[in-house]
């Protein structure tokens, strides 16, 4: 499965469109990480736990999107966009969407 955030896959021609595909996950941070983060909040700096958590969730969203695209019979997803929103205190949604296409 090829992914790209441009209009096409560079160097390849699109032969068929399949429509929009998307994937999302809503994740909450767990207490341990939250506690460490609140300590880190005093001195500032990178919150490694959160970086990893968000990266994992984003990978999961991408996998869901890929699965949907495979179901449609596509072999690539173009124009991939990411969006993050905090739906509630302590939880954020990671959403990824794109257009499923078939390339040569």
């Amino acid at each position: 499965m090829l992914l790209s955030n441009t209009e096409g896959i560079p160097g390849k021609n699109i032969v068929a469109f399949h429509g929009i595909v998307s994937g999302s996950t809503v994740r909450a941070k767990h207490v341990g990480r939250d506690f460490m983060a609140s300590l880190k909040n005093i001195v500032g700096g990178e919150l490694k736990g959160y970086t990893e958590l968000l990266q994992e969730s984003r990978d999961e969203s991408i996998n869901r999107m890929k699965a949907q695209a495979t179901q449609m019979g596509a072999n690539a997803v173009v124009n991939v966009r990411f969006s993050t929103s905090s739906v509630a205190a302590g939880a954020s949604e990671l959403y990824v969407y794109g257009t499923a296409v078939t390339v040569e």
Partner: peptide, 19 residues
Amino acid sequence: RPVGRSELVMGSVVISVDY
């Protein structure tokens, strides 16, 4: 030059301010 292959790449970070 002709393009051989391409892939989606990402980089992310979470940073907080100090007290």
